[in-house]
Design a protein around this nucleic acid. Structure first.
Lengths: 206, 206
DNA sequence: GTCTATATCGCGATAGAC
DNA sequence: GTCTATCGCGATATAGAC
């Protein structure tokens, strides 16, 4: 409706870029305004605080995550869907990496954000657990009787997805996978590694 | 030698406590000095900047990690040693959790710290990989031929150890494991879950 | 070593003209 | 909606007395 969204969006884009590059602590609203090519006053006209900008970025992230992880619903799921979802998820996590990188600190500093995040995560976790359960029940994965084991597997996938990028950024991965996209493939490999023991026994293995 | 260490240590203790509780961004040198019961001037006499304090805490952490992960050397290693090391490691990670929680941001803000950290991690990673290799070679774990697979398993264990606490702190785990120590046991369970497929086939399973 | 000022700076946020 | 100007504050860091 309003064309004011254009400016709002430019603020978010600039903030996202700077936060990803330098972290939220060292990026001030001044920097964001400069990067976006507007005055501080104007920035504050659109967002009444730095926290509001971060929240808006979180909301954007939330929308993208939910849409990327929504199952096709009109078509039976297969194992490739799982792989595709994980891939799409990595893209989004990378786009908003500052959020996950500083996650706990951001949540401590903004209880309201903490509530939103925990809500999102809770829903996402349940969905993913159901998805794995569905795969196990439909033969894509081998059956998982113990609910504790299912829960552990879900937590494991979730933890890896959420923090793999921070793990890479924090150094070791970077040194070894200098190539631009290699990190993503390696992350997927870790997820596959965790899933692998649950693939159904293959009758024709060498 | 000098009793100045007492004050220096009090500064570090106070800083550690506050950083863990509120994050480095919202804790100022003023707060640290107040918590330690000294003047700001005195604090700056001992550490010339906030970054220096963080570095000192990192060094402390490094020393504890290295000593906790040093193998007995005079005694053959067994699988319980692995479990004990992981447990000790969790304790240390918890003690210095702000470091890992804000890891990437801290490394971006302080390139010198980044160098130290990457060096430590590189050494730690190699050691741990060798340890797993040793277990695989000596029958504690089943043989792992593919070096890529060994590397993946090592990365996996490392990633889980390093970020599990942030994962818990960021919410989901907290809601489910309200009990004070349960989180640690659950973390170990995740690590065991990853190791389990590599345990040697047990002749007398039900 | 420790304290009490104090200097300096930049940040978040607002007021008011256009 | 956008700008310029500015206020108030708290943070880092230093100077100098004790």
């Amino acid at each position: 409706m309003k064309r004011t969204e254009s400016t709002r969006q430019r603020i978010l884009d600039s903030a996202l870029q700077l936060f990803n590059a330098s972290g939220t602590a060292s990026v001030s609203t001044n920097h964001v305004a400069a990067e976006a090519g507007l005055s501080v006053g104007n920035l504050y006209y659109h967002y009444k605080s730095k926290q509001q900008i971060i929240r808006a970025l979180f909301d954007q992230n939330e929308a993208e995550v939910l849409s990327a992880l929504a199952p096709p619903s009109d078509r039976p799921l297969n194992i490739d869907d799982l792989e595709l979802m994980m891939k799409a998820n990595f893209q989004i996590l990378w786009k908003y990496r500052f959020l996950y990188r500083e996650l706990v600190a951001l949540l401590i500093e903004d209880p309201e954000l903490a509530t939103s995040f925990r809500d999102l995560r809770h829903r996402g976790f349940s969905n993913f657990e159901r998805l794995l359960q569905f795969f196990a029940a439909s033969g894509v994965l081998r059956p998982i009787e113990d609910p504790e084991e299912l829960s552990r597997l879900t937590h494991l996938c979730w933890l890896i997805s959420e923090f793999y990028i921070s793990y890479v950024e924090s150094g070791l991965g970077l040194l070894q996978t200098v190539e631009g996209e290699g990190w993503q493939e390696k992350g997927l490999a870790l997820l596959r590694h965790v899933i692998e023991p649950y693939l159904p026994p293959d009758p024709e293995s060498p």
